[in-house]
């Protein structure tokens, strides 16, 4: 598959949050402010790309070679948890300013199903190394795009007069639905 198709499809047509429903928890949880959602997107981009790269290597050179594909879920999640820890330690040492910006989001990423989801999807789609990495980067951009647009909408929503039972999460879901509808307009461009 051509890279450009992978990229466009992952960001717009099959957006990981709005059409594949992965990473909903941070999408609803950390999208109240644009700044925090930019931080979260950065952290996800970082971890998702490295995690997909590493899990690809593990799948190809370890699990497939040894014929223990059934250990996939367990190894992938351990790798992701370990990577998150590692990234946290390295960032703290190497770039304290970046750590300050992304640090609080890192522990949340272990249970962000978008990261494990993208790693598993790359394997399912039989992507090669390069395709997997491009796929991961594109999906993390898609995640960031959805998150940041949504945060912008929610900042405005705070000023709106919302009926009481709708306040907070319920209205956020309705708005997410409208955003998903807007993204459906991209269908068919690839």
């Amino acid at each position: 598959m051509e890279y450009i198709i992978i990229v466009i499809s992952a960001i717009f047509v099959n957006n990981i949050v709005l059409s594949k429903f992965l990473g909903i928890c941070p999408f609803i949880g950390v999208s109240a402010r644009i700044e925090t959602s930019i931080g979260m997107s950065g952290a996800v981009m970082f971890v998702m790309t490295i995690a997909t790269l590493v899990t690809y290597l593990i799948q190809t050179y370890l699990l497939d070679k040894l014929g223990i594909g059934f250990m996939q879920t367990i190894t992938f999640i351990l790798v992701i948890a370990f990577l998150v820890q590692l990234v946290e330690i390295i960032l703290k040492k190497v770039s304290p300013s970046l750590y300050q910006a992304l640090g609080i989001f890192l522990p949340l990423i272990t249970t962000n199903c978008a990261v494990l989801g993208v790693a598993l999807m790359s394997v399912q789609n039989n992507f090669n190394l390069m395709e997997s990495v491009v796929f991961a980067i594109a999906n993390s951009i898609g995640f960031g795009l959805a998150l940041i647009i949504f945060a912008g909408l929610r900042e405005h929503l705070e000023l709106a007069d919302v009926p009481e039972p709708f306040r907070g999460v319920p209205i956020a879901f309705v708005v997410a639905g409208l955003l998903a509808m807007a993204f459906m307009g991209f269908a068919g461009i690839v």
């Binding site: 429903f21 209205i171 879901f173 309705v174 409208l178 459906m184």
Partner: peptide
């Protein structure tokens, strides 16, 4: 997908 979000919002 939009229906999923909207239906869940109303159920909440």
């Amino acid at each position: 997908s939009p229906g999923a979000f909207i239906a869940l919002g109303y159920l909440i």
